[in-house]
């Protein structure tokens, strides 16, 4: 279609504006986290720029604990949701079976569900089972909510798989288990990696589910929420920025590990027998 220059410029300006507004709150937080004053006011003179709050946050054992709990939850959630999601994706996109259509329709249902209500429901359910909520019950809550997403991500990759590859392996005498391990799994690996990233990040930032399912333990977003609703605290923006940096770090570490692993396997496979 003919798109005129003015249209392209107009739409670009609009997109730029949306992005600007979209990132405005993050900018605000960064600005606030660097202000020396106990009660933030803008603008502040440059001599009032300080990293004091970051130091405080990093030295606080309490905040370190929240980070630790969030990290544990994110790690385990990612592990379980990708593991279960891998098989669910096979059922979703690869195998032809009777319940498949129903399965495909129901997979996404938990996503359409208000998370706060889901969190409460889990809380009562655990209470009924006489389970005291702790950080590991939050793992269950997060996994329930995140597994549909990992399933979907891996399914997209599984749809792209050429049927002929598995059939060829079968024709060459591989058992189903061998096919799964030697053909399907490596081919789905990229999808599983991005699913892991998504799972870690979504769990890391999740608040609504954690609020009800962590019990006495507290994940980082909960702590932030508790502080935010009780007036301004200069530590909050600093911890917020740290949490964002933490998420970025997680992703970078994950990608590095994956890249390193891929290089290694490539070297191994490239080496003469």
């Amino acid at each position: 279609m003919l798109v005129t220059r003015t249209q392209r410029i107009g739409f670009s300006l609009y997109a730029g504006l949306v992005l600007l507004v979209f990132y405005f709150p993050l900018l605000c937080i960064i600005v606030a986290s660097l202000s020396k004053r106990r009660f933030f006011s803008f603008p502040y003179p440059s001599e009032q720029i300080t990293f004091k709050w970051y130091q405080d946050a990093l030295n606080s054992p309490q905040i370190a604990e929240f980070f630790g709990i969030s990290l544990r939850i994110a790690g385990l959630t990612a592990f379980f949701s990708v593991l279960i999601g891998f098989f669910a994706a096979l059922a979703y996109a690869r195998y032809r079976w009777r319940g498949r259509q129903t399965f495909q329709r129901l997979v996404l249902l938990p996503l359409f569900f208000p998370q706060s209500v889901l969190g409460l429901a889990l809380l009562m359910w655990f209470n009924f089972l006489h389970i005291t909520p702790a950080w590991w019950t939050a793992v269950i809550g997060h996994t329930v909510w995140i597994t549909p997403i990992t399933t979907l991500i891996i399914s997209i990759q599984a749809y792209g798989l050429d049927d002929a590859l598995e059939e060829a392996a079968r024709d060459l005498g591989a058992s189903r288990w061998q096919i799964l391990r030697k053909i399907t799994l490596p081919l789905l690996l990229p999808g599983m990696i991005s699913a892991t990233c998504f799972a870690v990040l979504l769990s890391w930032g999740n608040f609504a589910l954690s609020l009800f399912t962590t019990g006495a333990d507290s994940a980082l977003p909960e702590w932030l929420y508790a502080r935010m609703t009780t007036g301004y605290q200069p530590l909050v923006p600093a911890v917020g920025v740290l949490s964002v940096l933490g998420a970025m770090l997680l992703v970078i570490v994950l990608f590095t590990v994956v890249a390193w692993n891929q290089r290694r396997t490539r070297r191994l496979t490239a080496a003469p027998e």
């Binding site: 405005f24 709150p25 993050l26 900018l27 605000c28 937080i29 990040l201 979504l202 890391w204 930032g205 999740n206 608040f207 609504a208 980082l220 977003p221 932030l224 929420y225 935010m228 909050v236 923006p237 917020g240 949490s243 964002v244 998420a247």
Partner: peptide, 10 residues
Amino acid sequence: FVSENIRLFG
């Protein structure tokens, strides 16, 4: 991936 709370706090 940034917690909803942090963004709202912004």
